[in-house]
Design a protein around this nucleic acid. Structure first.
Lengths: 193, 193
DNA sequence: CACATATTGGAACGATCAGTCAGTAACAAG
DNA sequence: CTTGTTACTGACTGATCGTTCCAATATGTG
């Protein structure tokens, strides 16, 4: 009996994500979102709540969709360490290829909001934990398969890789050259040897 | 003959820096700045120009004062590598000790503004280059003094350390535990062995 | 003491902010 | 067709944004 929506919520959420990713939370106005999502105020507020709630939904989508999809590659059986290396190089290549240098929505949001928005900060911390844990699993598997030196600590390495990724994102956003970023990544990866 | 200013510009700039550091550029209002700097609109605009110009002055101050001061320790004669290790550990300890977890004004600004504000982005890139070059000098010195393995590349390591620092700042802002951050730092430092 | 000058305090500007709401439109069930 | 339920529309709110402007004020010099 209700009148059907004239938009697909998930598609609208995708558009909202692009805007937040590109401009950041504060710098994104509801006007921006309405235009990008191609719907009107009432529909937006009815469907997604206010700006913060919408943003939380966007973060959730980014986490489960974008991040989850990419990182699930690491949990597939087969050689662990080479896959991990390829994954990290691919991640960096992707970041460098973006002409807008938007970096990573998670890192952007941590830097902009974590100190002030406790609820959002909690969500973001969970995502980072998820990333660390994925690295941990693949490193543990690498160790079991004899690909990783037995003296190495998978937890420490997982944290190291996660931190390194975030640092690389900062450098990419700062405008570092592809050469410098790649050299840094290769330097970091030597720690797995 | 003119009436003297009732405030010390440099002190006011210091206050402005604290606000920008804590809240970020967009989220800081002129109202916030007026209150913190304890002066009135006319004086602020006459002395520092508009918000962006004030921010550039703040960045400049942060770079020459805060960053310059700390990093100059690395250029002093004596043992290079141990000094570098102490420096990095001290940097991280300082970041963790800040109850507000403000991170680093440079990194914060890169993440918030670099993609959109070309002028500010240029200034920030210069500061990061300055940091990388300081690491490069100390590593080169370490190599000359036989403290660093001859096979190591000072430029690559300098970039690595700079990137690692930025990543650590992200993690600190994200609310990572001191243990995790310290473990990560120690893992990263093994690359100097 | 008075002049010249820069600072000061605050009113006011238009623009934009996030969010609200009453009125209209569209669908499905009875 | 009527009715109930939801979605869309767009004008509107009060607050806040960065910025401008000016009269009042306070100072050091002649």
């Amino acid at each position: 009996m209700p009148r059907p929506k004239e938009f697909i919520p998930d598609e609208a959420l995708e558009k909202a994500m692009q805007v937040f990713w590109h401009k950041g939370y504060e710098a994104t106005s509801m006007e921006d979102l309405l235009e990008a999502m191609d719907l009107n105020r009432g529909s937006l507020y009815d469907t997604f709540g206010d700006k913060r709630q919408l943003f939380l939904k966007v973060i959730d989508r980014y986490c489960h969709g974008f991040v989850g999809e990419k990182f699930s590659l690491l949990d597939q059986p087969g050689p662990a360490l080479p896959t991990l290396r390829l994954f990290i190089r691919g991640m960096i290549e992707g970041g460098l290829a973006d002409p807008q240098r938007r970096g990573c929505l998670i890192a952007n949001s941590v830097m902009e909001l974590s100190p002030h928005e406790k609820e959002i900060a909690g969500t973001l911390r969970q995502v980072l934990k998820l990333i660390e844990d994925t690295f941990f699993r693949v490193l543990t598997r690498a160790k079991q398969q004899g690909e990783l030196n037995n003296g190495k600590d998978p937890r420490a390495l997982a944290r190291f890789l996660a931190t390194m990724m975030q640092g690389t994102i900062v450098m990419i956003k700062a405008g570092a050259s592809a050469d410098a970023v790649n050299q840094t990544a290769e330097t970091a990866l030597t720690i797995l040897d």
